[in-house]
Design a protein around this nucleic acid. Structure first.
Lengths: 167, 167
DNA sequence: TTTAACTTTCAATAATTACTGAAAATTAAA
DNA sequence: TTTAATTTTCAGTAATTATTGAAAGTTAAA
């Protein structure tokens, strides 16, 4: 397989993984593109490669910056902005996990705990409170599993792996 | 807050958590409803409570059965089918994790590993292969973290928690 | 069998989500 | 300053995803 063909397939694959986890496809593809680029890319570069509009590039690049996984970079002699993705994939995983915990898990735990305060001692009410308690417990458990994962420093493992592969 | 109000809020909250993780909202809501029900529910029951069509109920109940988190139950003297959700929330988490691993993570690892075979030794090509290797490594790592999570038997922890809460 | 209760399917449609492109806003060079 | 390059915004539209409802299919009671 030829390099550009492989790159395309990689960008497609990453986009559909994102979609199945509720992340915008284009956002993932822009990120995927920046990840494998050897140099910073401008909005134009991204527009051309992914064949998407300027507005779309702008929105998704902002979102990626907001997620903390892409940053602006200035290129000497150039007026326009360029973008780069942090190439450290373990860092990437940690960052995504951190954001999703904050955005999507923690608010739910809060609501579940709030709802448990309902005052009802019928069988139905007790059953309801038991399920809420269990859901909240498991959600909290998952949340702390993720917390541990992002705290553990696996950098050495990854850099080690890459070194071995280079041989 | 009154019980039905709390139930509604819970069903809504669970539905939107699902949406943000790429799972159909109604599917999550049907499941949420079955979870807090003290008795098996028929298609009609679900239609009425969630105000959705028969077709929609049918499709989503099938999907839940396919995911292994809901099952049919026969009620004596009734012709039609009834459904129940397994009330064990840790089991639920394990089952969902297992399915998503199989459906959405493992196929991606396979593609990434396949693409790494591309034969190209330009700087661009090497960079590409390095990123693919790292992505594959981290994805595999996450996959095995999840594997460990579902293997660990945390049942005692959950049942213990519930007991404490009942006091 | 026949009949009726019940379930499934899926084309049509609705709802949601994502994208475009051009106008407005911003930035910095002239 | 002016001017031109660049970025941002967002109303309109396109694409995708989810839902309905009625017809076809299935099952079991009569």
């Amino acid at each position: 397989m030829e390099l550009n063909e492989a790159k395309n397939k990689y960008i497609q694959t990453w986009g559909s993984l994102a979609t199945s986890w509720g992340i915008n496809k284009t956002m993932a593809q822009v990120h995927a593109l920046l990840l494998v680029s050897t140099k910073p890319l401008s909005a134009e570069d991204i527009m051309e490669t992914l064949k998407i509009s300027r507005g779309n590039v702008n929105m998704n690049v902002r979102a990626l910056i907001d997620w903390g996984i892409v940053s602006k970079e200035f290129v000497v002699g150039e007026r326009k902005e360029f973008f780069v993705a942090d190439k450290d994939i373990w860092e990437l995983f940690k960052q995504i996990t951190k954001e999703r915990k904050k955005r999507e898990i923690e608010p739910v735990i809060k609501v579940l705990d709030e709802l448990q305060k309902v005052d009802d001692s019928t069988e139905e009410g007790e059953q309801f409170k038991k399920v809420l308690g269990d859901l909240s417990f498991v959600t909290t458990k998952v949340n702390s599993m993720l917390e541990n994962a992002i705290k553990a420093d696996e950098h050495w493992l990854l850099s080690n792996f890459t070194k071995i592969m280079k041989k």
